[in-house]
């Protein structure tokens, strides 16, 4: 693969969130030695320990594997208007490629968890990213 400037991004969380913000892309890593995929970029393959890893773009298509609607929220989510009256839905999301990520779920009713269905189709929502406090966000497809 060509070593363009984008390929030189370091394999870390800063790059992960800047890809989402700047290029609207969900990027993880793939190990060139064993093929292992990681949704959380890192400089070493956690499976075979090779340092020969490269960026891998995920489609952003996913499904909801499990979730919670949080009423007692973190200070950061409180600042974004979540709380007892507006619970924050957060889930474990399975990417089309089979890996999972933790993500904030927008566009669902946190006050009505019964209306939120595990298995529902989701897509990456790159426009919600707050550069001050970046969070991976998905919404119903």
């Amino acid at each position: 693969m060509a070593q363009g400037p984008k390929e030189s991004k370091e394999f870390n969380a800063t790059s992960f969130f800047s890809y989402i913000q700047d290029e609207k892309k969900l990027m993880g890593i793939q190990c060139r030695s064993c093929g292992h995929l990681s949704s959380t970029p890192r400089p070493m393959c956690p499976s075979c320990h090779s340092k020969d890893v490269e960026w891998h773009e995920f489609s952003g298509k996913a499904s909801l594997s499990t979730f919670t609607c949080i009423s007692i929220v973190s200070v950061a989510m409180g600042k974004r208007g979540y709380g007892r009256d507006n619970p924050c839905c957060t889930g474990i999301v399975t990417l089309e490629e089979g890996l999972r990520v933790s993500a904030h779920i927008m566009g669902v009713d946190g006050n009505n968890p019964q209306s939120i269905k595990t298995g529902m189709a989701l897509v990456l929502d790159p426009d919600e990213l707050d550069p001050e406090d970046p969070a991976l966000t998905f919404r119903p497809a």
Partner: peptide, 26 residues
């Protein structure tokens, strides 16, 4: 919890165990 990938998504401690509970219920 993981401050780079779990906490920013809004997960709290009860939140993570809430997600485990939902998975167990499913």
């Amino acid at each position: 919890a993981d401050g780079l990938y779990e906490v920013p998504a809004g997960l709290t401690f009860p939140g993570i165990f809430g997600a485990l509970a939902k998975a167990h219920m499913d």
